[in-house]
């Protein structure tokens, strides 16, 4: 797959860290995009606070989505869950047709404004990529491997924990990676319903016609996503090596 060279990722991480801790140092960079003499750097809330909130929100949502999705996939691939499999596929397929904004907007009347509707939308939206990869990898394992594990006398649980999950882990991690990257971008939408994320900077820029804010918010989220993506790719390679796949 196409991935960003490691040197670039490290440079990006350094730049991101510098920008978040000392955004004023970058004021000249954003000056041309701010209309008139409005401040070029968003200052209502420190960018670092927003970035940390953003990351925490996405981390919580991705963790919950991973546990749920892998759990569902394990159930759907057990012999007793075979009836559930076509249905689970159909739901995973149709679930993606729900636009995240719609999930967010529909959750607001039920749970109110703020972090909770955002978290719900992120978990629901993050489930599908993980579920799909977990399902594909667990149901695509070589039947001979399963037979061999059974022949060694492993129980169903031992087969799952010692054979199936480790072999499926690289794929599952890649699903979690996709889910986290989508989540980082989707979390910005949470600011339209008053969640504290980097989307706040973008929304403020859109409302006041200040492109500098839009750029700051957008590029920070994009940089976070690229760094997180690179981190997960490292984990993915580790998992693949542990499972004995050629790297």
């Amino acid at each position: 797959m196409s991935r960003i060279p490691r040197v670039l990722t490290i440079l990006l991480l350094a730049g991101l860290g510098g920008f978040l801790t000392k955004p004023e140092a970058f004021a000249a960079l954003f000056r041309p995009f701010a209309p008139g003499d409005t401040p070029p750097i968003y200052a209502q809330t420190p960018l670092l606070t927003l970035a940390v909130n953003h990351l925490l929100l996405v981390a919580a949502a991705t963790l919950a989505a991973s546990l749920l999705a892998v759990g569902f996939a394990v159930v759907a691939t057990r012999p007793a869950g075979r009836d559930v499999l076509p249905f689970a596929r159909a739901v995973a397929n149709l679930g993606q047709t729900f636009p995240p904004v719609a999930v967010l907007a529909l959750a607001v009347p039920v749970v109110g404004f703020g972090t909770v509707p955002t978290l719900i939308a992120l978990v629901l939206y993050g489930l599908l990529p993980i579920f799909e990869t977990a399902l594909t990898s667990l149901s695509g394992l070589d039947p001979a491997l399963r037979e061999a594990a059974r022949g060694l006398g492993l129980t169903g649980r031992q087969r799952l924990v010692q054979v199936e999950l480790p072999l499926a882990l690289p794929m599952i991690v890649s699903g979690i990676r996709v889910s986290a990257v989508i989540g980082l971008a989707t979390a910005t939408l949470g600011s339209t319903v008053a969640a504290s994320t980097l989307g706040e900077v973008i929304v403020s820029g859109l409302l006041t016609g200040n492109t500098a804010y839009v750029l700051q918010g957008g590029l920070t989220v994009a940089a976070l996503a690229i760094v997180v993506d690179a981190g997960f790719r490292v984990l993915q390679r580790k998992a693949a090596r542990r499972a004995g796949f050629p790297s």
Binding site: S2, L184, A185, T186, G199, V203, T211, L215, L219, V221
Partner: peptide, 22 residues
Amino acid sequence: LLAVLNVVQTIPSMALFGMLIA
């Protein structure tokens, strides 16, 4: 090609819409 398009995907939709206005 794929790397550039991958980076585009990471920009939040709200920001990309807004960045293009100017």
